[in-house]
Design a binder for these strands. Structure first.
Lengths: 212, 212
DNA sequence: CTGCTAAGTGTGAATCCGACACTAAGTTAG
DNA sequence: CTAACTTAGTGTCGGATTCACACTTAGCAG
């Protein structure tokens, strides 16, 4: 480790896998690239680190610029540093995952994107760069975090029914669980508090809960 | 995300928290800095990313250069990007933790280090840069990984007794566990295989085990 | 040969996990 | 008005896992 660092510095960027629930299915936000390389291909939103900006702040800023919302959950889950992963120059990508409640999405394509769209995770297009790898790792990280339940609140409105919570859990985990067992698990995790209000739908009203 | 990236690139480095067991206690490898800034202070080993080098490879190379061994376990656990964390220039630090069996240590101070030494984790000196923060986070990450037992093999010789394994577990977790329960847990994790050999010490010989 | 010390095993209580079926309370259609 | 439908919500039992307890075993040392 020489005192003077004579090697060229790589570029550093954040990429964000933004997830939401739409009609019960897990969706991810992709942008269509407006410029070369990979012009016309779909990619994860992201952008370069600015001077004197922290990595977390960079991810948050990029996300706000792309969706005009602040993420309720924004966590780092890995770095991607393969030489040549960006044909322009060396780019180290710091990858984050973010969760959004589906009713707070204002997708706005920015200058680098022709359009921005949600895709269900089982119907993805080809992705630019190594973003397919990044997204696969994001899904793994999300799955293991979701077992603590509380990260899921970010996918739901401020108050929600237990059926909604279970739906989010199943969509993220990728498998179904018994209703009774799920409720028992939530009960002794003590991460939700019941309210006095009910939501009236097509059938028996469901009690609303909120994060504890 | 403009096509041309006009911002200055930050430097990118890896820092490695190398842990081992010495006389039953968890120790971490520190180097004494030979140059400014923080000349004379203790710091985690680490160094700058080279062109066309992956981050994992950088951590492995730096570790080999500092200790002349290959780590049995080398995992990324976080990035540190606070502006000003290095007074020379902007440096993004990609942090790894590594585990070594205590009998394979050949510590060799390199050009940037006056000396390299093991410190027990409850007797640490003041650390340079933000390395105290990095080390704290490393210990948390190590603690949660160690619950799967198998990472601990990296701290032990190729064949070991269950008492050694339990000692490593307790040192990393930071609390004591019941002997009988620990053995039951190891048994149905099915991560070790018993051998036909015993180690003869001061008292009743102990059976040797190896990773399954 | 006796005593010390670390290795290794058994057991019972409490708790958690998973599969089972039923009751409750609204809406809607006839 | 009422009957049928659909989703919300609860009880229970057996098996497995967790945890705290105490005893036996085997080699070494004096």
């Amino acid at each position: 480790m020489p005192f003077t660092y004579e090697y060229p510095h790589p570029a550093v960027a954040t990429d964000i896998a933004v997830f939401t629930l739409r009609r019960g299915a897990l969706n991810v936000l992709l942008i269509e690239r407006a410029a070369e390389p990979f012009r016309g291909a779909w990619a994860l939103p992201g952008g370069f680190l600015q001077p004197d900006e922290e990595l977390d702040a960079c991810a948050q800023r990029e996300l706000r610029e792309e969706t005009s919302v602040d993420a309720d959950l924004l966590v780092h889950f890995g770095n991607f540093s393969a030489p040549g992963r960006d044909p322009r120059e060396r780019v180290i990508s710091v990858a984050y995952l973010a969760l959004l409640a589906s009713d707070e999405l204002r997708i706005a394509a920015d200058t680098d994107a022709a359009q921005a769209r949600w895709f269900p995770i089982d119907g993805l297009p080809e992705l630019a760069f190594d973003h397919a790898t990044i997204l696969r790792r994001a899904l793994e990280a999300l799955g293991s975090r979701a077992r603590q339940i509380s990260p899921l609140f970010a996918l739901l409105p401020p108050r929600f029914t237990l059926s909604q919570l279970q739906g989010a859990y199943e969509a993220v985990i990728g498998e179904e669980v018994e209703k009774r067992n799920f409720r028992k698990m939530v009960a002794n995790l003590e991460c939700v508090r019941e309210t006095d209000d009910f939501v009236h739908g097509a059938h028996r009203p469901a009690r609303l809960y909120e994060p504890a």
